[in-house]
Design a protein around this nucleic acid. Sequence first.
DNA 1: TAGGAGGATCTGA
DNA 2: TCAGATCCTCCTA
Length: 536
Amino acid sequence: MPQIVPSAGFTPPCDYSNFADNFDLSLLPGGDIPTTPSPSSTFYSNSPPPMQCGLKPKISTTFYPNSPPTNDIDLGPDFQELLGPESTKPTYPTSPISGIYLEVPSIKSTDSLSPYSSHSLLSPNEHYSTFPSPSSDYQSLYPNSPSDTSSYPHSPNSFYAQSPDNYQQYVKKEFFPPYVKEENYLSPCSNVNYTDISGNRELADLLGTAIIKQENSIEFDTILQSFRLNSEPAQKNIKIQIVPEKPKSEDHKLLREVLRDTTFQKRYNIKPFDFNLMDNPIKMEEPDDIIDPCSDELSREKIDPVLNLAIEQMRKDVSNTCAALGISPDPAQWSPANVLSWLQWTTNQFGLSTLIPNQWDLSGSNLIALSEEDFTRRAPQSGSILYAQLEIWKAAFSEDDLGAHWMPESASSNASSGEISDDEEEEMPTDVEPNKPTTSRGTGSSHIHLWQFLKELLASPQTHGSCIRWIDRNKGIFKIEDSVKVARLWGKRKNRPAMNYDKLSRSIRQYYKKGIMKKTERSQRLVYQFCHPYNL
DNA sequence: TAGGAGGATCTGA
DNA sequence: TCAGATCCTCCTA
């Protein structure tokens, strides 16, 4: 599996030492598994071309300097400090540190950098503005990078994970290429013996950081400065030798060492990501002498909580959106109106071009039957993203995995700790439970909930702005400007001619107990606030 | 006086 | 069974 990437603020209980234990170095370029990225995927599509095994081993890196890189770039004195003392300053490409030089590739065509290429699984709640244009900074070129949390402001609807049960399905559909990106890597024919520098943890850190660097957009200057401050005396003893080819079990030892080292992770607050290795058919390569018969079990123990959290996050994300849209978590049950609602929401979330409604006048069951080609035919610009998002929803509503346990965030977070009290259960809003699809009560029906109706009014300020409006949309605070009119509209919708604001407000107040609405911090007349996630 | 708060009870799905 | 409707009393700005 690909990478279970948590939302910002989420720190999975695993580290790079675990990653190192489970990382199949044969995945590295030139390894057993071809590394050419799938052209249909933007996941890790920026990997450098596979290294050619020449006479000299290489440490290849794709770090991006402040100025646009060129193939003939002068590495400059700063970076050279990393390789050796001034007296041994090399002349590129011939380094006095035998056989090691840096390869700085030219920037690739921006075509491959689009975050909207086919099958990109983007967080549905990310702001489109955070995605880079092809001309934006290099550091923004990895919108799908698992480590690139900076571009992804935390959102309860963020979608960085998926059910492991559906992983195989995704792999088959090439949602996730079955390889692991390594933009910086040791050439498989490298014979660098870093044993001699293993005592220099800072250098190992440095190299490790450099390896992660372009993924996390860490300023190179920062790394260099850190290196200068912390390891200047030690670097004099740096000695890198070329040794004969080692057995495969000892190959990539430097990378192994770096991956086991988590100091860089702490220093730069880098969050590791999970490869869901237990479900991944990729076999782990492990030196024979340190094979731990219990490692699989231990890895599973470490990974399981991460998976559970990721799955729970996924449930929350979709559940929140269901609640916000008033639609069933099961796309198959969507009415044409629900389909349009979902499409509109998704296009808004991703800043996609507006869809032509009459091309999407179909039920949920028909929608999920569409192929990706059907999607792209209806929406050439955004069809792939819509299709991918729908796949997520379909996966989210899994009869076996999720359907029976679906619950809104407030309840699911409690469920994760296994501490749902009777009271809490009683207060749990049942209107967004998956097994009680809201479709039949959804927008357009007389069975709509009051809170949904109010959101409906709030969603059309052009029409109803005179009687109800948002005070603070983000916080879900709104004000009823014309209580009589709102009550009348509510009564009309519910076919209750005797409805008045007194009754309506009583119903609103009932929501306090249910955790759907609450009083505002500073109590104001006719001002109410939706609780999370109903404010979404 | 309008609106907020909340208890009690009824209604309909 | 549950959400919402209805009726009620009391309180506050």
